[in-house]
Design a binder for these strands. Structure first.
Lengths: 206, 206
DNA sequence: TGTACATCAGTGAACGCGCGTTCACTGATGTAC
DNA sequence: TGTACATCAGTGAACGCGCGTTCACTGATGTAC
């Protein structure tokens, strides 16, 4: 298959068919999301960036919700990867701690994606890829917290309470930081994470 | 001053001047917010409910942001009251625990208000009443956690770390519950809080 | 007590906005024979 | 190897949407004298 990348980038005319529009739209959407924030995301702007008409995305994602769900699923995969690599060589409390730092780091580093991941009203939460990616992220945390026993049960299972506690603490910290509790300027969340997060994690008993 | 309440309620014609439009708009806005959720809030719909023209709110709140900020400030006051009354007769860890339960209860019971309180993009975060009400809620928690020493420093102060840890955990738990982590049906958040929250709070060390 | 007048608190029409989606269409591709 | 044809992946114009805000206005209130 001949791949005709976007003429916006190359300057060359591209043929009628894009050739790899799906990934191009994902990339454009991520850029739009990061720049405008989740509340101002626009499908039309995404199409504009990808150099196609406003109706083109419908062929690949159905509607805006479909595209955003794909984005959120990808973000959960990335979060899972970050948790995994942060804790790879560690065990027990050390692993949990490293995951907590990585979790907050992800949230602060990819704010718009992190916002999107939890915005039910914009997503198709029953989408299989989305659900699986979200589930995996939790399982990684559960396994770190409970060792061999962890990683197989749902967050609703009473046995998962220690993992939920860890998750809640880092999730809440990230949200408070992003939502301006530690200051409204852009650097405040990172500053708070650096100064406060280690001490905060000391109050998590796992 | 003669107060002419809204003709929508009384059925009687009301005079040109409403008489108590500001509180009426607040009440209407709370109703709209609760019914539509924060993402679908509409100033026009609020004016419609209050029985006035779409431009009337501008006289009392400037713009939509002004009205939403007043709503968020009121919600923070209410949250503070809930925290206070939940822990009134308690001390130490018991008080913190009771506040945690009250915090999550508030979030789940007043979902739309809770969502709004943290939505920077819709609020004027520098508004004095909003800032003071938010600050008070944190101070109450800090005082419960640190006793006499608490309640006077900002969340960014390293000394506040234990209170931030408690706050983060309950805030994160509430957000995860509201955002569908424990199931997508409406009853799931409350069910999760009932079954999981006590065990989760056991992992908070204060 | 009456009157003039400034101020307050509403009206309602109009504006401009960008959005997501639909629709009939067409250029390009790939496959069956 | 050529050809017919189904299918795929785009176009671009149009639709309808409800929104927040602005504007010139006017009815009602309250106050100074």
């Amino acid at each position: 298959m001949v791949i005709n990348q976007n003429s916006v980038k190359t300057g060359l005319p591209r043929s009628y068919h894009h050739g790899a529009l799906r990934p191009a739209l994902i990339a454009a959407a991520e850029a739009v999301l990061a720049e405008t924030g989740v509340d101002r995301f626009s499908l039309r702007e995404t199409a504009r960036r990808a150099g196609v008409s406003a109706s083109a995305p419908a062929h690949h994602f159905g509607d805006a919700r479909g595209l955003l769900t794909a984005l959120a699923a990808a973000a959960f995969v990335e979060l899972g990867d970050a948790l995994e690599s942060a804790s790879r060589t560690l065990q027990g409390a050390q692993a949990v701690r490293a995951m907590g730092v990585a979790y907050v780091g992800f949230a602060l580093g990819q704010r718009a994606s992190f916002d999107l991941m939890w915005r039910e009203s914009l997503l198709d939460c029953s989408n299989a890829e989305y659900a699986a990616a979200a589930r995996r992220a939790f399982s990684l945390l559960d396994r770190a917290v409970r060792g061999e026993a962890g990683g197989t049960c749902a967050p609703t299972d009473p046995a998962a309470a220690p993992a939920v506690a860890a998750w809640a603490m880092v999730h809440g910290f990230a949200r408070l930081a992003l939502d301006g509790t530690f200051g409204l300027d852009n650097a405040a969340p990172q500053h708070a994470a650096d100064m406060l997060l280690p001490a905060v994690l000391d109050h998590l008993e796992v």
